[in-house]
């Protein structure tokens, strides 16, 4: 068992819980053991740095400092979310490059009795770890139900391949690691020239017109090449392509119906795990027809939202000026 420190990030707690479930479900069979960062906080996404630089870096560094406390034998940290991966690795790279910034951030951390040594915690994306640490051969040995007949568009999005602050594990323009992984699972990988283009990120909240066009570009590209599903490695990409697909159809007069699945869900299916334990049924564009193509039964019913044990009371609306 290879040990890793695990940073799930806010999305994986709820909106991308299917990603979390499937990541944890395939860990043991792939020989990976995770220890979650205790009491981790938000990585800052792309919003915090737009408001306060020093706070944004202190926020991200608190997670690195927590992970540093948990290190026992040089483990690396794994982040399944591309934005968390980018923030954690970029923060560490900038703190290492700038002793001035590192000094100031450690001064802020000291107010909470914490400290981080730049360079101590190496953060990697889950895809990198799966293809390079576990490796294609070991995965191929675990494949029990190959995904023959499933036409997969491998979607990387941006932040996992660009700009590559710590590791450049794949090409920033035309990455191929996820393609090879999907082929290892027996899937048919379709050509997907837009595989490293942007899903729109937070633009869905800021400008419908820009965001829906960016999403449309990707869906059209996948549809043109006859993809049954798009395999994704990021909760933001999944959310934009899945939850806004109906809006794209409505606004642009298209008729897409492409399920957006996490690559970990597809690994799990190929390893013979059930659709239930891999978080299927939470996607908005129903994956059942695609699952039927490879002889997998969809889960009986979608799980309902249940308030979590840690849930707080409903917040009140802040006063607007």
């Amino acid at each position: 068992m290879k040990k890793y420190i695990y940073y799930p990030g806010c999305s994986l707690e709820r909106n991308a819980s299917a990603y979390n479930d499937s990541t944890l479900a395939i860990a043991e069979p792939l020989g990976m053991e995770y220890q979650e960062v205790d009491d981790w906080n938000c990585c800052g996404a792309v919003e915090f740095i737009a408001v306060d630089k020093m706070q944004a870096y202190a926020l991200t560094t608190r997670n690195l400092a927590l992970a540093e406390q948990q290190l026992s034998n040089g483990e690396q940290m794994v982040a399944p979310c591309s934005a968390c991966f980018l923030n954690l690795s970029k923060c560490d790279a900038y703190l290492t490059a700038s002793p001035d910034l590192a000094g100031k951030i450690n001064q802020a951390l000291a107010a909470g009795g914490m400290h981080y040594t730049p360079g101590r915690v190496h953060t990697r994306h889950l895809l990198d770890v799966i293809v390079n640490d576990v490796g294609y051969d070991a995965i191929a040995e675990k494949v029990k139900k190959p995904l023959y007949d499933l036409r997969i568009a491998p979607y990387y999005g941006c932040l996992i391949v660009r700009p590559g602050f710590l590791d450049k594990f794949d090409d920033p323009e035309y990455p191929t690691s996820l393609d090879n992984l999907m082929r290892t699972l027996g899937g048919t990988v379709v050509d997907f020239p837009m595989k490293a283009h942007c899903c729109g990120g937070h633009m869905t909240q800021i400008s419908d017109e820009i965001a829906l066009n960016l999403i449309n570009n990707l869906l059209k590209n996948a549809a043109d090449y006859g993809a049954d599903v798009i395999a994704t490695i990021c909760p933001m990409c999944q959310l934009n392509l899945d939850a806004y697909q109906k809006d794209v159809n409505k606004a642009l007069g298209t008729n897409y119906n492409i399920p957006i699945l996490y690559f970990t869900q597809l690994i799990g299916l190929a390893m013979g795990l059930s659709a239930d334990e891999l978080g299927f049924g939470k996607e908005i564009i129903d994956a059942a027809p695609a699952l039927a193509k490879i002889g997998v039964k969809p889960p009986k019913k979608a799980r309902k939202a249940r308030p979590s044990k840690e849930a707080l009371p409903m917040p009140t609306m802040p006063e607007e000026e």
Binding site: E13, R14, N15, A16, S17, G281, K282, E283, I284, A302, R303, K304, A305, R306, P307, S308, A311, L312, P313, M314, P315
Partner: peptide, 8 residues
């Protein structure tokens, strides 16, 4: 409905 958003 799909349990993808926390109410609190």
């Amino acid at each position: 409905r799909r349990g993808r958003m926390d109410l609190t």
